[in-house]
Amino acid sequence: MKIICLVKYVPNVEDIKYDYEENVLIRDNVKLILNPDDAAAVAYSLKAKEVNPDLSIEVLTMGPKSVRPFVEDLLRRNVNKATIISDPAFAGSDTYATSKILASYLKEKEYDCILTGSKSLDGDTAHVPAQLGELLSLNQMSNIISIDQDSFNEKSAIIEVESGDKTLTYRMSFPAILSFRKETGYELPYIKYENMSLDVSDKLNFISNEELQLDEDMIGLKGSLTRVANTYNKNFKEKNKIVVKNDDQGIDYVYSFLKKKGFV
């Protein structure tokens, strides 16, 4: 059985600073982290591989070459193969263009299912898994919180999905795209001490547009159908806080605030 794990390395949102004068995000020195939802997908795959050692896992990611040490760490955790799609020509791609780039790699591949996250911390659109589903003619399901291990095979799987106040159980036939949520409780295993610096370069594959041969109108800014025109910051710090006492006057103040804002 073969699984492809589609992951994204995202800037740790906590590190992002805002330049209030220039109205831009400062992304220098921002740490990359494995998108938490995607980490859950890899963690599940590795867990499934423990039960079924014949399972083969390929991690696929798209991003700058600097994600390499992070990807290597996944290979040191028993992932079989990793592919980094990286090309300056892909920079600026929106989710539409990104999905097309990823699909052009995936359509040549054989797999039973693609496991990924539901959404990314940075963009938070949740577009790519569904759009890949469309491009590859696969069904796709988001917000998966668990997969029934016994049911997981080449044909199908029984999955639990969280949808607001309900938990839904589905059977999905493969091939399909399954998108996890980080709240699954699946955790990446440790890297063994002796593997901490293991050379895994033979399992790591870089793909650029030289291999994919996508038309330049399809990729990067040119291939994108959406673009960010403005950013608006929501600045907590500019608040004019009022301090009141927990007495009649204070309660009156809170009440009229709630009233003014339409909360009561």
Partner: peptide
């Protein structure tokens, strides 16, 4: 730091 090794290896890693 985030820990990606076994707990007993944390210090030396």
């Amino acid at each position: 730091y985030e820990i990606n090794c076994a707990p007993e290896d944390e210090l030396r890693v």
